[in-house]
């Protein structure tokens, strides 16, 4: 039997076009041996949830720098739950003030990675949290 491969959806919700972080994360996860599906820019939470389900990913990584995270991140989690896919791990990154983190965690975002976080930390988190 083949070893378990972690599949990750790297998604850019909202209108923000800054994808440097998302691309770096995508490459780092690939180099860590994961299969990464990249959605490209300007995805609605509905599109992200649909892609996550169809691709049967273990993890969804959301990247956003525009400040709309409190609106968009929880929406993705909620839609996944509605699609019976609440077991998919959702993590987020970007310019996110510390003060917003508790709210996001309460709403199902497993972890928030703020600017300056090494990719190794995200990889470690994903590897240890995907059952």
């Amino acid at each position: 039997m083949a070893e378990k491969l972690i599949r990750v959806l790297v998604a850019k919700p909202g209108l923000d076009g800054h994808d440097r972080g998302a691309k770096v994360v995508a490459r780092a996860l690939r180099d860590a041996g994961m299969e990464v599906i990249y959605t490209g820019l300007r995805q609605t939470p509905e599109q992200i949830a649909a892609a996550a389900v169809q691709e049967d990913v273990n993890v969804v990584c959301l990247s956003l720098l525009s400040g709309a995270h409190n609106h968009l991140f929880p929406k993705v989690v909620q839609l996944l739950k509605e699609k019976d896919a609440g077991d998919i791990l959702v993590v987020g990154g970007g310019v996110i003030p510390d003060a917003d983190i508790p709210y996001l965690k309460e709403n199902g975002i497993a972890e928030i990675f703020t600017p300056g976080t090494p990719t190794s930390k995200a990889i470690e988190f994903i590897t240890s949290h995907v059952q």
């Binding site: 490459r27 690939r30 041996g33 299969e35 990464v36 599906i37 990249y38 490209g40 892609a51």
Partner: peptide, 9 residues
């Protein structure tokens, strides 16, 4: 690495 980035979506 066995990893891949799939971008066709």
């Amino acid at each position: 690495t066995g990893g891949a980035i799939l971008g066709d979506r």
